[in-house]
Amino acid sequence: MSGSMEFLLWTKGPMFDIALAIFAIGLFARLAEIFLLGRKPNYAEPRAGEWLPGLRTVFTRTIADPGTFQRASFNVVVGWVWHIGFLIALLLFVPHAELIKGLFGIAWPALPNPVVDLVTAITLIALVATLVHRLTHPVKQRISTIEDYLVWTVVFLVVLTGYLAYHRLVNPYPVALGMHILMAEILLIILPFTKLTHIFTTFIARWYNGAAFGRKGVQS
């Protein structure tokens, strides 16, 4: 196991399986944990239904209201930039699209590599900005836990190793690619046990939020 190729194959083979298994077990456990808790019946006379407002909120909450945008513009913009950047790199980079196709058989068109490259660079900068913000903003300082920094590190390393691998700045390449895959696997592994779960649960949370407000006649 000393060689770079063996390392790459380990990350592409057994380690990927392990990571995926832990991720899937963890995530589904987490979802089961949530849904099985259920909600108590609500006897109050509703003003409106829950489903539609809930679904609306799933989408509308993506955009900050003007007041919040004004008060936390840096936070919002930087968050937006790196989330979108991350998603573009994750879903629209050719090798990633092929990975998804290979795993699930679903394919979609990808972006030209230079575009993804630029987006990735911006994402990295935005991620650094989020860290600086977390370290300097009083609220974020106060509420941040070790987990926040751990998660930041993993996410940053996933993007950074991907960037380094793409530009072949680490040699030999199997090490670079292997590191990237390994970081992504670590991300997958910690995902269900950290705030990264929000990738999935935020849609549930938003729905509950929209449903609760919607029931009372407020579009949240």
């Binding site: 068109p109 990808a110 972006l111 030209p112 230079p114 575009v115």
Partner: peptide, 8 residues
């Protein structure tokens, strides 16, 4: 231009 190329 690149986009039009990827579209085939």
């Amino acid at each position: 231009e690149q986009l039009s190329v990827t579209l085939g």
